[in-house]
Design a protein around this nucleic acid. Structure first.
Lengths: 220, 220
DNA sequence: ACGCGCCTCCCCCGGCCGGGGGAGGCGCTC
DNA sequence: GAGCGCCTCCCCCGGCCGGGGGAGGCGCGT
């Protein structure tokens, strides 16, 4: 049985592009389309798609609100893949916090888009797609600080949050980080929470994975 | 103030080697030596070293028991760096579980040894030293399965445990792993515990770090 | 037939974690 | 001086996590 996808985007061009890319796959099927968030819920009830590919910025009801509404009101809701134009879109993080399962850049290559839909359908989270690493690689002057700084800026991490993430990626607990930075554990918790939110990570393990995958920290 | 180190090894040659390497550093000082685990506790009380570099296999009282005894009986105990000959030494994992802060191979390069002592003294854990990655690199036929398998064998992870570690490294929770593998969460917890023990990791975050650092999983 | 390793599942429990919500101080800019 | 971002700290709380200890089944090799 194929993966059934509902496309939600206010631009017909984008919908057509996604449809063309996805329907070229034998195991993926476009179940329907919607032009704004308000139309999503009834359509989901009617079509029962496996995955909703949803734009963030839309009229009437944006992707964040639509995600929240979906998860709140629909029983056994579909998986939600958030689609965005800008990799720096703060709305994306909000959407992920609202319960979306992954995000995808519109300028991603077709193979990446297909891959993303399959992964999401399988129940994977897709918080750190290839595009993030590409950003780091674009600064690839032998690795080093520039890539890390770029990722840091990309996620809008503050300096302190970057420090905390680095220590998380060394395996330290909140208490140990607090000792190291000579602050209270509550302070560390605040920073950790901010890092999790900005990276779209659910817990510190996912944050550390993001740190490695983005090149913010490197093995070796 | 320099880092003060107590050397514990039954072989005088090893002690001499460690002493030579460490005393070449201006910020490291060898506070004393012991030839077996039984002599450690009184010496620690007397000398109050910052770090104990302790062999695992020793007569009278081995490194594991000596570590346990130290942490149980001495107030404000020193940090413990376990020294071993074989990277496959199961005793090492026992020592780490007993509370040691890191391990080091005797055949490590001097710079690595010095580095290890400094890190331990700073309060870092050192569970996955460079030697582990070197093992992976030794199989460096473009990365891939052989290195991962080598690390897996090195840590004596079973196939199932390797699977679980891979899923942990993708950010899945125990419940999610259970769903994926179609087993109960208790089963997953058992595997996770085994992985943590074998890697000498304290929590899943450290296990994931180990997975990246060893090349068991790779970014990208 | 027995031991052994592995996979599976169970109970109890303490603790760290992460969410929510709030608040004060500091330096900067407008 | 008012706003704003950042860092700092606080409380409450539910939940996942990890430790300890145990147990049964299965295949394998001796």
């Amino acid at each position: 049985m194929p993966v059934r996808v509902l496309l939600v985007d206010d631009e017909p061009l984008v919908r057509a592009g996604l449809r063309a890319v996805l329907e070229a796959q034998p195991d993926i099927e476009v179940a329907g389309e919607a032009a704004d968030g308000a139309a999503v819920i009834p359509l989901v009830r009617q079509l029962r798609p496996d995955v909703v590919a949803m734009d963030v910025r839309m009229p009437l009801l944006d992707g964040i609100e639509a995600t929240r509404a979906l998860l709140r009101t629909v029983a056994d809701p579909p998986r939600i893949l958030v689609v965005t134009t800008f990799e720096n879109d703060e709305y994306v993080y909000e959407a992920l916090r609202a319960g979306a399962d992954g995000f995808l850049l519109k300028r991603a290559r077709p193979a990446e888009i297909v891959h993303a839909v399959r992964l999401i359908a399988e129940g994977e989270s897709l918080l750190f797609p290839a595009s993030v690493r590409q950003l780091a690689a674009a600064y690839g002057d032998g690795g080093g600080n520039r890539a890390a700084r770029a990722v840091l800026e990309r996620a809008r991490l503050t300096e302190r949050e970057g420090e905390v993430l680095r220590l998380m990626a060394r395996g330290l607990s909140n208490a140990e980080i607090a000792t190291r930075l000579v602050v209270g554990t509550e302070t560390v918790k605040s920073h950790v929470s901010a890092v999790l939110a900005k990276l779209g990570a659910r817990d510190r393990t996912q944050a550390v994975i993001a740190a490695y995958e983005s090149g913010f920290v490197a093995p070796g």
